[in-house]
């Protein structure tokens, strides 16, 4: 009786020790598999974000000692008209992406299904802008927008208007760059829509045809509703991508003239690496991070509710 009890206990203990050993081994396995990625990620992503937050409470030129100034950088930031201009410009990029790029991408994708000749050529060429490096795109378009020798002004002249100094005029610089952004990214949305359109069953169009629907009706009652999930996911990509915009603006105008094309990204870069206001720049950078975070969470919540309602 007593011995039986003892054996049972030791058995349980052995089993427990066994599970424990297995658990430890499993943890070690998981650790070894994830460690390389985790280390790189912690060093180059997580730690820098936390440092940016901490730098943002200091006045610092990047080399000499830091001085703690509390929330002063943020207070200065909220009173900084250039910062508000750049935030507004970022919003313009977002709006252009969602309301110009995405519809244009959809039209381009629709064209690929049009019953006309030369579709293969069209689809190859339509995609080309997305392959070019942003720096090359920026430099190329600087010359296309050249006030004297640029093709855009040639076109403007043909239409009977005077030359426009596109990139050096406060009123036109933003429009000019946004056109380039549209040129670069529309092909990307074209591909997303093309993939979604391929997935729409042919029978739907056939039965609509039998019911006497015309092309517009087919588009608005079949294609568009079925593309809704793609429109939503494209908008998410467009919004998140637009908040990060930097390269093309830096190359084409550097944020000028008179901050007309300043973005949070270009302003942060200037403050950090030209004026060496590292603390102030960190505050801008952290606000950029917060905005991206809030927007992402918001999108996820909206998307989750939409899916729960079974909307699409």
């Amino acid at each position: 009786m007593e011995t039986a009890e003892v054996t049972r206990r030791s058995n349980t203990a052995r089993v427990m020790a066994g599970t424990k050993k297995r658990n430890v081994r499993k943890a070690v396995t998981i650790g070894l598999f994830t460690a390389p990625a985790l280390i790189v990620y912690l060093v180059y992503v997580v730690y820098p974000i936390l440092s940016t937050l901490s730098y943002s409470f200091y006045s610092w030129d990047g080399t000499s000692d830091k001085t703690f100034i509390g929330f002063d950088n943020y207070i200065q930031l909220f009173n900084d008209t250039i910062f508000w201009t750049s935030l507004t410009n970022n919003v313009w990029v977002v709006l252009t992406s969602v309301f110009v790029q995405i519809p244009l991408g959809m039209i381009m994708a629709l064209m690929l299904f049009a019953p006309i000749r030369g579709i293969r050529l069209f689809s190859s060429v339509y995609f080309l802008p997305f392959l070019m490096s942003t720096v090359a795109i920026g430099l190329l378009w600087v010359y296309m927008f050249d006030p004297i020798n640029g093709i855009i002004n040639q076109l403007v002249n043909v239409l009977g208007f005077e030359n426009v100094a596109w990139l050096s005029d406060d009123n036109t610089a933003m429009i000019a760059i946004l056109l380039v952004v549209v040129w670069q990214f529309s092909p990307f949305y074209m591909i997303l829509f093309k993939a979604a359109m391929v997935g729409i069953a042919e029978e739907l169009y056939e039965s609509a045809q039998i019911d006497g629907a015309n092309s517009w009706q087919k588009f608005f009652h079949i294609t568009l509703p079925l593309l809704m999930p793609t429109i939503v996911s494209s908008s998410i990509l467009a919004i998140v991508g637009s908040l990060k915009a930097f390269d093309i603006f830096y190359i084409m105008t550097g944020g000028g003239p008179n901050h007309a094309t300043e973005l949070m990204g270009t302003y942060m870069f200037k403050q950090a690496f030209i004026n060496f206001n590292m603390g102030y720049a960190s505050a801008i950078a952290f606000i950029m991070f917060l905005i991206a975070l809030v927007v992402t969470v918001l999108i996820q919540v909206v998307d989750y509710n939409r899916k729960k309602k079974g909307a699409f």
Partner: peptide, 12 residues
Amino acid sequence: MLPIHATLIPIF
């Protein structure tokens, strides 16, 4: 979703 700018100064 991370803006690279948020890591730029510390990585520098």
